[in-house]
Structures are given as C-alpha cells and as structure tokens.
Design a protein around this nucleic acid. Structure first.
Lengths: 153, 153
DNA sequence: GTCTATATCCATCATTTATCCGGTCATCTA
DNA sequence: TAGATGACCGGATAAATGATGGATATAGAC
C-alpha cells in the first residue's frame, strides 16, 4: 500500500505533464510500458492520483485579480459554519477555502476579473451571509510562486 | 484571439479531465474530432492551456499539514525582497507565495508532514533568511474547498 | 526442501487514438 | 466575379493503449 522510488518518479513526471504517453514515460524511467501502466493503475486505484486536469491561464480567461480574504464568523450557532461552507462551495469565484486555527476562522482564496468584481462579490455574496462578522481582504500584487507541484521525491 | 462558447466548453471539460480522449471530447461537444483538435491546438498556442498535470493526493504522500504564513520583511534594502522570493522558489514545501497589499508583505502556502516538520522548516529556512521580521502561521484544520476549477463558463 | 501464492516485469497483438491531408461550404473583400 | 479566409468534416496512416499469457523472483506454510 506504500510506494517506492519508481512510483515516486512516475508521480513526479505525471504531475508535470499529465498527458505524457505511457511509452515515453516508460522510456524516461527505464521500464517497459506495460509495467508502468500497471503501476499507474495501482497508483490511481489506491488514491495517489486523483485525476488529471488542464492548467489554464487565469489572466487569459479574464480573471486578473487574485485575492485572499480572512473571514471571522459569529460563533453563536454551529449552523453558521455549515451555511458558510455551503455558500463558499457554490461560489465559482472561490478556488479554495480553509478553516484555520488562529486569529480568524476561514481563509478564502478567490479569482475575479478586477477590484470592481471583487467589491460586488464581497458585498453581495460574502457579507450577505448570516454570521459573517468581519472580513479582511488582501489583494495579490505579484504571484511569486504559483501552484507548485507537490514534493513527491 | 478571443474564444467562443465551444472553446470555453473545451476548456471546462479539459480542466476536469485532462486525459479525456479527443474523440470523446468531440462527441460530448457535438463536433468532429478534427475540429476539436484544431481548436485545442489553438488554445494551447495562444496560452489558454498552459499544460496538463496529474492531481495528487497530498495526504497519501505524507503531506498531512497545510499551513499559511504571513511574512513581514524589513524594508531596509530592496535586495531583501529578491532574496526572499528566490528562497521561496527553491523550497519544495512552498506551493504558493504571493506578494500582497495590506497588513503584511507575503502570504505563503506550504505543505509539510506535520507540525514538527513545519517548526523545522520555519526555524531553519524561513526565519534564517535575512530581512524576515515577523511571521504568523495559520494551520489549516479543515479544507472546505480545495483547488476548485477556474470559472470558464 | 518443496509447494503455493504473490508481485513485478516483459513481449506480442488487436483495438483505439491522434494527426495529417485533401476537400466542402460559407463568408468576406478587392 | 474571383480570390482569400476560416471553420468544419472524412479518410488514411502511424502511434499509443490495453489485454493476454508467460517468465522470474520472493516470501510463507508445511
């Protein structure tokens, strides 16, 4: 149920190029395509590989602004947390949302077109939710490192 | 140089399943595989699709802890920023790093095995950098929404 | 030691897929 | 009108995939 060096190499290469041909992957590792195929199938079955996806350029798609928001909730009813989580999952602008330990409750990462779009989303969606006590928005000025691959090596 | 509804549908499907066969993609959209192939090639050439990658499960790989860190730098020399950026890019634990406008300078997202590993990384790597004045670590307790696809629709 | 079960690897082959090429049709323009 | 352009399609070919059977090695039970 655990993986060896070859498996890690497969994952590493596949994380960088999810569409690489099995034969080339096999060549690069030094095993037959059949073996690599079996290993990959196992890695998928055991949940190491959850899927494949195209990496899209957000700016090209008109999503020029990346923002992070710290959200504090009223802790009066536990229902508030559930409702917030559901709202966030239904909002396509929100790419990530994490419950954190520390000074605030949720950290939200979102992509929108510009500041105007963000103001609209913040006012009409986030602040409209019941239980949202306070938010702090941090606009990203420069993406120093973007979506690096997981360290599998 | 801009894209239509069909292109968006291609991007949307491909973002969810980057390994889908061209023929099935064509079927699902209602065009011939050739046309889809031509469109896809154009989308790649024009930078809408930057690549493909396998989605790996971080927990399976022993990366059980997700943390966000707010970093404040001494603004004495401009060299400090460059050096910090470079260090962060070379650190495999760091998945993202953004320069933000607001109360602090950088927001760092990192994945490590556990709190012990994080303490080690924080002490030996981050705080060892010259110019790092203050850091605030927020450990993620629950990932409410994880790496959602970009809204292309 | 021997037998069995399991795991890893490999070569082969039928099927599926990607891609190149030529050709059609509609639209626009000189 | 003639020519150019762009989006689309079908057919042919070269390549990749996936399934099968088989070889080898290791570990455990008896």
């Amino acid at each position: 149920m655990d993986i060896d060096t070859i498996d890690r190499k497969i994952l590493s290469i596949l994380q960088g190029d999810g569409r690489i041909a099995n034969v080339e992957l096999a060549e690069r590792i030094g095993l037959s395509p059949t073996s690599i195929g079996e290993r990959l199938k196992r890695l998928q079955r055991d949940g190491f590989v959850e899927g494949y996806g195209a990496r899209l350029n957000p700016h090209r798609l008109g999503l020029g602004l990346l923002v992070f928001v710290e959200v504090m909730l009223d802790k009066t009813t536990p229902d508030v947390f559930e409702r917030f989580a559901r709202a966030v999952q239904n909002a396509p602008e929100v790419l990530e949302c994490h419950m954190v330990a520390g000074g605030f409750d949720y950290l939200v990462k979102a992509r929108v077109a510009d500041m105007a779009a963000w103001r609209r989303f913040l006012g009409e969606r986030l602040l409209a939710l019941p239980g949202v006590r306070e938010t702090r928005t941090y606009a990203v000025m420069e993406e120093v490192k973007r979506d690096a691959p997981l360290p599998v090596g």
